[in-house]
Simulated assay, not measured.
Amino acid sequence: MSIATLAEVLQPALRQGYAVAGLVTLGWEDMRAYVAAAEAEGAPVILQAGPSCRAHTPLPVLGKMFRHLAETASVPVVAHLDHGYTLEECREALDSGFTSLMYDGSRKPLAQNIDETARIAELAHAAGISCEGEIGFVGYSGGDGSDGTDPQEAERFARETLVDAMAISVGNVHLQQDREGGLDEARIRAIEALTTVPLVIHGGSGVPVAQRSALAHTSSICKFNIGTELRMAFGAALREAVARDPARFDRVAILKETHDPVMLAARTVIRALGAPNKDI
């Protein structure tokens, strides 16, 4: 299966009533495990390079890693820039082989966010790839609070930017380690009543699994971003591997032991979102 764009995996999800997992990567070990999980589930997957990932590994390197995994996978794989904050960063991701650009102007005034996101969407579409935008700031656990998305503003944002997917703020929070928050379903219904664009939930680790699954099947939410719970699985596996023999020092041997636990955790995430066990 060749590498896919975001639109190529989200449009079937919108039509058929499921969601695709946007899995936040930090390095080779987790991204490889995520693709293995997607293949085991027969489902598409979105590999996401967020700011902390890019601070560790340059975009041109990440692009090659994502594309190598995609081009050897049996399922569709999207190479996605998560939370791009500048035009230059988005251009670099495009030049590095990414197939989806997420521009985050959610902290900016609405008109500025629309103008800048529309420019990124035009850039992406001219190159034959996809664009995701964000309307309504999604906060961080222990940090800045969220600004809920206004449905009327969401309709305008989707219409004027022509994005392929729209991230919304409906009670979701980045970096949340528990699943006690839950999403504002009334706000979700109000937003989807005004637009047909696939919706995205950032901070999906804080959303109860049952609610993720229900919304994947019954709403326009076609993508859940999941990072924290998978990083927790990786960290637990890594600590166990090191503690088993404190004298070990070969990092390749140690990191190898994170693969199966992370793959199994990712399989659980993917399965709950209901993607059919078949190619798109």
Results as ranks from 00 to 15, higher is better:
T196A: 08
E88R: 02
T117I: 02
R119K: 11
L110G: 10
H174G: 00
E134F: 00
L94W: 07
L87N: 14
D144Y: 04
R187K: 14
E132L: 04
S100Y: 07
R189H: 14
R91M: 15
V163N: 06
A186I: 11
H174Y: 01
Q177H: 09
G97A: 10
A190C: 11
P151R: 12
C90H: 08
T99N: 05
A121H: 02
T195K: 08
A124E: 00
E192V: 07
A127E: 11
D147P: 01
S146R: 10
A126N: 11
F137V: 08
L194K: 13
E122G: 09
L123R: 12
S130E: 03
C90F: 12
T117V: 04
E92V: 14
E134C: 00
L94Q: 06
A111F: 13
S169P: 01
T149E: 11
A154I: 04
A126V: 03
F137Q: 09
A93H: 02
R91F: 15
D184P: 13
R91E: 15
S106Q: 14
L94A: 13
L123P: 03
E88L: 02
Y140T: 06
V170D: 00
S100V: 03
F137Y: 14
G148C: 13
G182V: 15
Q176A: 13
C90K: 12
D164P: 00
A111H: 12
S106C: 15
G145W: 03
L101Q: 04
F157R: 01
I120P: 00
D178V: 03
I201A: 04
V197N: 01
A190K: 03
P151K: 14
S100W: 03
A165T: 01
G203W: 00
L101D: 00
D147I: 07
T195R: 08
Q176S: 13
G143M: 09
L199R: 01
E92L: 15
G182D: 15
E180K: 06
F137N: 06
G142M: 11
L199N: 03
L162H: 07
L110W: 15
Q152P: 03
Y140F: 12
E192G: 05
T195S: 13
D95L: 10
D147L: 07
K108Q: 14
G133I: 00
L87G: 09
E116S: 13
G181F: 06
V170L: 01
G182Q: 15
D115S: 15
A154S: 10
Q177P: 01
Y103T: 01
T195D: 09
R187S: 11
H174A: 00
R91W: 15
E132H: 02
A127Y: 07
G143L: 04
G142N: 10
L110S: 12
M166H: 15
R107L: 09
E132K: 03
L101C: 09
A186V: 14
L162Q: 05
L183N: 04
S169N: 04
N172E: 07
A158K: 05
E155F: 05
I114H: 12
A93M: 04
H202Q: 04
C90T: 07
A167P: 05
L199Q: 02
L175N: 13
L123H: 07
Q176R: 11
G181I: 02
L87V: 15
D104C: 02
V138H: 06
G203E: 03
I188K: 12
G148E: 09
L199F: 07
V173G: 00
A118P: 02
L110A: 09
E185N: 14
